[in-house]
Design a binder for these strands. Structure first.
Lengths: 343, 343
DNA sequence: GGCTCACGTGGGATCGATCCCATGCGGCCC
DNA sequence: GGGCCGCATGGGATCGATCCCACGTGAGCC
């Protein structure tokens, strides 16, 4: 038990609860009760302990507490790529809600790899996070975490529907509505530009697109459903092919912000004017869409609300581990700008 | 010691190293040596232990390890706002480098508040992070963390220059060069739009601006240095005032991406054409700047490189706690687009 | 007076992994 | 043959906070 602070105010050793107890002239148990507020402590003793803690700049060692309590006060967040504004804003939303409830954030990115997701999940298990919020890329993460009894909430898309809580948006409806708008403007040749249709997001956005066309009696043209890789460059070249003069659609619906960026760049590359030569709408309202001219009409998702709902769901799951899984649906909001025009 | 796994493969209790040791028929010490790779273990014994661990789905409890070792394998990251692409990309860069070195990320946002920074720092101390990467908003965080002997690296701006490691860009030079370009195009009335000049970033960008003008023999016009609040709306209205017809500058240099967005929106609001009516350049090349027409000329910062350098610096600091502080400077790259024009 | 009960405090076990130290064994060298 | 050293293993203390339990005191009640 040496000195705790050197001449410059730098601590040579961290104060432990034992130091606080000694300084306050009580036992460790009493100091613990005073600091945590659980159990009986006389008022004057509590104050003496708190003063001693303050004085020694005592910061409780969370690792010791977590070890004893078998759970930490942090939430694991696993997203694909923080450079994508959707994930960044989602993470910000989760972080805000987590902080509001006294949790800190352990953040990991997977770059879209299922393998990386499981590795991140292993870290979560090891650090005993209280729960995990994940945008899954396969069922593996959820399976892994569930096996280890770690509460999970899937956000944005679902791979373990029915077996795991989830927070999603109404993809089908958002998609259908934005296509209905295009149809209302007289469009008949509407392309869907999409990266995959196996995840719930892609599948439902695809289905919403089909439903809108079907309801209007417009036959589906398979050539107008174009798939692309997941990054901007792939989207840009796939879009360039889609926009070649022969058989060009009059409108394009990009199923997410990355694809929209690809279409936008390809249209610029080809000298196509939006909306004069082409109407363009997007699922997911990225920040750039309100900065370009014309602004893009998009199906906006409230990422902060998604993140907050995910944390709330997680906390309820933690409180009631055996309750039935719940899927929360957040509504979308179509943001009308100037990238569409009547035909 | 009950069963570890129930009928569905869900673990009823987590396997501990003791379970692994018993399953492999060795002591906890030997199991620990086999699993960590530190100390002597016979080859066949090691394999038996690893097999047992695999079999029991053993995941070492990091909280126990951290408690014993008095330090965790995670790095704290503290930024202002993930919704700002600069911070998101910086965090992504830090995360990538951290992962590459076996560290996980504890992420916190402060919304620009010094108070929130200290609170986040307290969490970092409590969880015994190995070190912290921070974009400081005052000297408080660094002071607090240093007192508690937590290694810190300041990124983007410095508040504890000389007392703390830092990774920054050459703000003065980036700023000067982009202004020189404007001067080369014939501009004389160049406004600087800036939020603050007390942080190193603002101060140096301001100084670079002044240096370029001085070198060209252009007198400083204090009316052309306009300050604004830190959010887009504040920037937008301040920019609107700056761009009123009487005495309007021919070019504006926005000192960061948020300010650039404010100017961009204000120019649109006022019907000003860029670059015909106004040249605009920015410090910090945000993603939207390559999507708008005309594209914005900007001083680009490599956020991934900043993040990686910060992690490397942190790891060296951890390895040599008493070494002299080092400031690493990352170079900037002017990205020329079409938002400027000769006058 | 003896009983219960609320309040208040301290001792000691506990969480799970690490690591120091003691011990044992076999080979090798002088 | 004795001593030394490398290899290999296990026992037990340790990290810091929590929390169960035992114990003590004094008030209130029959």
């Amino acid at each position: 038990m040496g000195r705790l602070v050197d001449g410059d105010g730098v601590m040579t050793r961290r104060a432990t609860i034992k130091d606080v107890a000694i300084a306050a002239g009580v036992s460790r148990s009493t100091a613990s009760r005073a600091l945590t507020g659980r159990g009986y402590v006389a008022t004057d003793v509590r104050e003496r302990v708190l003063a001693a803690a303050e004085d020694l700049r005592y910061v409780p060692d969370a690792t010791a507490r977590y070890l004893k309590q078998q759970v930490s006060l942090s939430i694991g967040v696993l997203v694909s790529d923080l450079r994508n504004s959707f994930y960044a804003r989602l993470a910000a939303g989760v972080g805000q809600a987590a902080r509001d409830h006294g949790y800190s954030l352990v953040l990991a990115e997977d770059g879209g790899s299922a393998q990386a997701q499981v590795e991140a999940a292993e870290t979560f298990v090891a650090t005993r996070v209280a729960g995990v919020v994940v945008t899954p890329v396969s069922a593996d993460v959820t399976t892994y975490l569930s096996r280890h009894r770690v509460p999970v909430v899937e956000v944005d898309r679902q791979f373990a529907a029915g077996a795991c809580d989830a927070v999603v948006v109404d993809n089908h409806r958002g998609s259908r509505e934005v296509i209905e708008d295009l149809i209302g403007l007289g469009h008949r040749r509407i392309a869907l530009f999409i990266d995959e249709t196996t995840w719930t997001t892609g599948r439902e956005r695809h289905a919403g697109y089909q439903a809108a066309l079907a309801a209007a009696g417009i036959p589906l043209d398979p050539d107008l459903v174009v798939s692309s890789g997941w990054d901007v460059d792939a989207a840009r070249s796939a879009a360039a092919a889609l926009l070649r003069p022969d058989g060009r659609p009059t409108a394009v619906f990009a199923a997410n912000n990355v694809l929209a960026e690809g279409v936008w760049r390809a249209a610029n590359d080809l000298g196509l004017r939006i909306p004069d030569d082409l109407s363009l709408v997007s699922f997911d309202d990225a920040p750039w869409m309100s900065l370009v001219t014309p602004g893009l009409t998009a199906v906006g998702q409230d990422e902060a609300a998604l993140g907050e709902a995910a944390v709330l769901r997680l906390l309820e799951r933690i409180a009631a581990p055996e309750a039935d899984p719940v899927t929360v649906t957040i509504s979308t909001q179509i943001v009308h700008r100037a990238s569409t025009r009547a035909i």
